[in-house]
Structures are given as C-alpha cells and as structure tokens.
Simulated assay, not measured.
Amino acid sequence: MRRLIDVRPGPGARVLLGGLPILALLVFYFLASETRHAANPADKVLPTFGAMAAAVRDFVTDRDPATDRVVLVADTLASLYRLGLGLGIASASALLLGLLLGVVPVARALLAPTVAVVAVIPPIAVLPILFIVLGLDEASKVALIAIGVAPFMVRDLAGFVAGLPAEQFAKAQTLGAGGWQLALRVALPQMMPRLLEAVRLSLGPAWVFLIAAEAVASDLGLGYRIFLVRRYFAMDIILPYVAWISILAIAANAALLSVSRRGFPWAHGSWR
C-alpha cells in the first residue's frame, strides 16, 4: 500500500489540485454573496459577480482625463512603472553591496552593521520623511520600494556569497585570479539565480509599499484607486482591483522563475 507521503502528482494533477481550493473559495463567496443579497439587495459588503463585472466594464471603457487612457490601463501602467523602477534600483544596489560584503571581509565588517540597522526600520515609518525630502511625485514612491526591500536583499546575497566554499576562491587564486576576478568570475555567476530568487520573494513587500505610497499621495495607480473608492464602500471595485494586483504579482513571479530556470538551469537541478 502506497503511503500518502510517497504520492508524486504529475503536472496535470498539480494544476487540478492547486485549482481546487481556489474554486472552493469562489463557490463559497458566490453562495455567501447570493445569501446576503437575498436578504438585502443593497448589500455592499459582498457584491455579486455580476456587480463586479459591471464595475470592471466601466473601468475598461472609461478614460482617465489626465492621461486619456483607459482607467484600468492607466492605473496599471503607473503602478508597474513605480514597482519596476523601485525593484530595479533595489536589485542593482543589492547586487553591488551583496557582492562587496560577501567577497571583502573588511567591507562586511564596515557596512554590515549599518545594513542590519536599516533593515529593522519600518519602511512605512520613513514614508513621511521621503515625502518631505523628495516631494509627493514619483521619486518618493520609488524610494520607498527600494528602501523597503533592498536591505533584506543585500543581507541575503552577502550571506550567500560569504557562504560559498572557500575552496573555490582558493583554487581561483592559485590560477592567478585577482580580487576583481574573484568577484566577477567566481561569486557573481553564482549570485545571479539567488538575486532573481530574492526579487521574487520581495514582490509581496514591494506591492505593499507601493500601495501604501499611492494611497497617501497619488492621483493615479492601483493603490490610489482602491483607497479612492473605499470611502464609498465600493467593494465591487476594490475586490476586482485586488484580484488584478494578485494576477500581476503571479505573472511577475512566473516570469522571474522562467528567466531563472532558462538562464541558470544548474541552480534548479536541471541541465538543458
């Protein structure tokens, strides 16, 4: 008799099993929504799927007066621009500092405590300072994302590089490698899949910081739209926007995972 721990579902079975909880949640929401609306047709807490579809239809047909784009498209492009720029700055900073701290012990002793201190500061608490220093435009929102995720990425990459086998560096030095060659030829190639993994893990916090910044001071963006309509209890708009953010996050995660597997198959236990 096969034990449950020994059962390995195939690709199709994994998709089916992964979709079952989501389907169950949708069925539960449908039943709860219909029950509430049967008792109170004006209920706004659990809008019906039809009401949400009507709200989404308005946002994919109406145009934003500031950009002359469809509202949903304008909000999505604004948020993705801020998110991409913030994560890009954080990734570049983490790559450089992680490489430096991981390879050079003196730099690690000098800068690691500062990075650790910055990492424990709640980024949301820094948001008013960023608004005062950088203003209410894009710079403060992008800076919040970068400051929020970069310290953790730096610590992760620096720890990864510092934990590489010392024999690799010793053999490279035996073959005549200098400091830059150790960093660029030994440490950097092994860092890249770890960097992509760090970016994937930072997507969730980055979205939180983005929505918080857009909610406080913005006139466009997914977070701005959610907090704009909350005063009207417009759950028929909020829930589809939350679902759309989730879809974007899942797509970004899948894209990063695909790039990592294609570019660095050895890091995933497979060779092409």
Rank of each mutant, 00 (worst) to 15 (best):
F30W: 15
F152I: 01
V45R: 13
S33M: 08
R36W: 09
A39V: 12
I237E: 14
F209V: 03
A90G: 08
A215I: 04
D75W: 14
F28V: 14
L248S: 04
A13T: 15
G221C: 07
L195P: 01
M235W: 13
G223K: 10
A125P: 08
V154M: 03
R185V: 09
F49A: 14
T67Q: 06
V142F: 07
P11F: 11
M153P: 07
P47R: 06
A119H: 08
H37P: 06
S260V: 02
A150W: 02
Y232V: 07
I132F: 10
R230C: 06
L97I: 00
A90W: 01
L228Y: 09
Y241R: 06
I145Q: 00
G204Q: 10
I145Y: 01
L195F: 05
L80A: 03
I247W: 12
P193E: 03
S270V: 15
A267P: 07
V216S: 08
L111G: 03
P205W: 03
A251I: 13
L111M: 10
I238C: 07
R57F: 13
E34F: 03
V115A: 05
L72H: 09
A177G: 07
A243L: 14
Y224A: 10
G263L: 12
V104I: 10
L100F: 06
A55H: 05
R155C: 00
Q173L: 06
I238N: 06
M52R: 09
G102S: 06
L188F: 08
S33H: 09
Y81I: 08
G86Y: 05
G269D: 13
A116V: 01
L4F: 12
G18M: 06
V104M: 01
A252F: 12
S33I: 05
P113F: 00
L46E: 09
S218D: 04
R14I: 12
L134S: 08
V208G: 03
G163F: 07
F28E: 04
A212V: 15
F131C: 02
Y224N: 11
L97Y: 00
A78E: 02
L20T: 13
D75N: 15
P189T: 11
V103L: 11
D6R: 07
P65C: 08
R261H: 11
V15F: 10
V104R: 07
P205S: 09
D43K: 03
P151F: 00
Y81T: 12
L222K: 04
M1V: 14
Q168M: 15
I129K: 01
A139L: 14
W180R: 12
E34S: 14
N40M: 12
M153L: 08
G159D: 11
P47T: 12
T48Y: 10
S246D: 02
V104L: 09
P41I: 13
P9S: 05
